[in-house]
Amino acid sequence: MEFIFRKYGPDEPIPVTAVLRKRKLVKYYNREAQAAVLTAAEFLEGKGVSSDTPFYYASAETENFDSIRGIVGGIDSDIRDICSLFPAVSTLDIFKMMRNMVPCFIAIENDLKGDNNVIIDSASALLYCALTAPTEGNVLIGAGRLHADGSVECGFALGTPSEWNGHPFLGSGKGATEIFELGEWRQ
């Protein structure tokens, strides 16, 4: 099994455009998407992962405030009146709020068309997806966490379903990025 885990500081540049095949989508990327797409590109380089490889991704339920700030930041009146929200809302920010966009971008970039799922934060859910994947071949799993200060961490792993048997985070309340921070483990 192979792992990768990366962290980016609050103001640290994430040079994702250098690896993109479809650059026009980058306007939809939040910092988690930037970090995850870049890390996935680095991780999958030269591995020859086929397009039907199952891919499961977990996005943490944390402080995705940059998108919310973009949506409501300019509001100072009675915001129960939806009309007052209208001019402030950017379609791009809506995409940044949708948790399945990060794996969508990774799938588009790497032509991943297989079995898939999108998880909110849970290491356990991500591991059960991998463990029960409809293949005996490799499964790609990944996770990202965006913090309020703009720092971001993400990780990926490639392994067969049976390799996740007995992982200590199955059934736990751990966050998904902790799988990759832990890396190799022993039963």
Partner: peptide, 23 residues
């Protein structure tokens, strides 16, 4: 034995149900 939420937009509950079958 696990509290798992899924968020693939309009297929989120289909994928939750599908994973349940596999489990």
């Amino acid at each position: 034995a696990g509290c798992h939420l899924f968020s693939s937009a309009c297929t989120a509950s289909a994928q939750a149900i599908g994973l349940s079958l596999r489990m």
